[in-house]
């Protein structure tokens, strides 16, 4: 009983309930036809959301005002650079990946530098740096779409028994990040800073080092997502990151992470990512017009967030 009660208070529960409800509603509407395939597609596309949301979650957990708005531009830049350098050659796949990671390290360092040394608030710093990254991507390849190497594209779209390989990899990544969050000194430090930066500092948490690590990590995740998304969708496009700006934040918040910082959880990210994809799919399947769809999307997201934050023990 107490175990059930404890589960019931978990903030990530609501995202999963919402995702399942929406999936069942879709399945009911179609009489069960294609329900498994829809879930398979949801795990594929949810994986991309989860990769960027993992980084965004750590950043948001650092406390009020911390958010990374340069994720779309970072994805575009990393995807563009990697695809152009690989130029479709299988042998260059590792080089492309290392370059994408290097782009992430560079982007993260610049973002943190703006925040720390020029004392620019993170929202402004990452928004303005994103113009630079986006322009760099435009300058580097003028919007030309270069195909990914065959082997990489096959990996990104591969399925085993109907389960996308990419989704399995990202689930493993999420498990690792869950332990980083709850079991490592770094992860506890992020949460402590989010709850009270001064107290964390007095308790011996290396505040600035933790913040630097977090912004760099977030940018590296965004870069990796750009690399994989480019491979998955047949090349990097200048607008490939566009929808990840708001969705990276939405996935974190719907997943039950506090937008004010200090409280985070990884399982909710997967629930929220599946939910966002399944919600659009459900409304498409119902044949709802664009206006109705957007209004309902907004209302449902608000409802889930309210439910999730109602279930959270803020004083615990």
């Amino acid at each position: 009983m107490t175990y059930l009660a404890r589960i019931g208070r978990q903030p990530w529960l609501w995202a999963w309930i919402a995702a399942l409800t929406v999936w069942l509603a879709t399945a009911l509407f179609t009489g069960g036809q294609g329900a498994a395939e829809v879930m398979s597609a949801a795990t594929t596309f949810g994986a991309f959301f989860v990769i960027v949301a993992l980084g965004q979650m750590f950043v948001i957990t650092l406390g009020p005002g911390n958010v990374d708005l340069s994720i779309p531009a970072t994805m575009t830049l990393a995807g563009t650079v990697a695809m152009k350098v690989m130029d479709g050659a299988n042998a260059m796949i590792p080089v492309g990946f290392l370059l994408a990671v290097a782009v992430g390290l560079g982007v993260g360092a610049i973002n943190y530098g703006l925040i720390r040394f020029l004392r620019i608030p993170p929202i402004i710093a990452t928004l303005s740096s994103s113009f630079i990254f986006q322009s760099a991507a435009i300058w580097y390849n003028r919007g030309l779409r270069i195909k990914p190497p065959e082997a990489l594209a096959d990996f990104a779209t591969a399925k085993i028994l109907g389960v996308p390989v990419l989704a399995v990899v990202v689930v493993l990544l999420a498990v690792v990040m869950h332990f980083v969050l709850v079991r490592t000194v770094y992860g506890r430090g992020v949460i402590a800073i989010g709850q009270n930066q001064r107290a964390a500092h007095l308790a011996g948490v290396p505040v600035e080092r933790t913040r630097a690590t977090t912004y760099v990590m977030c940018a590296v995740f965004a870069s990796c997502c750009g690399y994989v998304l480019g491979a998955f969708s047949g090349g990097a496009a200048l607008n490939m990151g566009e929808e990840y700006l708001l969705s990276s934040i939405a996935v974190v918040v719907i997943g039950g992470t506090s937008v004010a910082g200090g409280y985070a959880n990884v399982p909710g990210l997967w629930g929220a990512a599946l939910f966002l994809f399944l919600l659009v799919t459900m409304l498409n399947t119902f044949g709802a017009g664009a206006g109705v769809r957007l209004v309902l999307t907004g209302l449902i997201i608000i409802a889930v967030i309210v439910a999730a934050s109602g279930g959270r023990k803020r004083d615990g």
Partner: peptide, 19 residues
């Protein structure tokens, strides 16, 4: 809605296609 973008269209079609 595919937003005139390859990856968005791919995602939207993948979602509705099974039904």
């Amino acid at each position: 809605h595919g937003n005139w973008a390859q990856d968005v269209a791919q995602k939207a079609v993948a979602g509705i296609l099974p039904s």
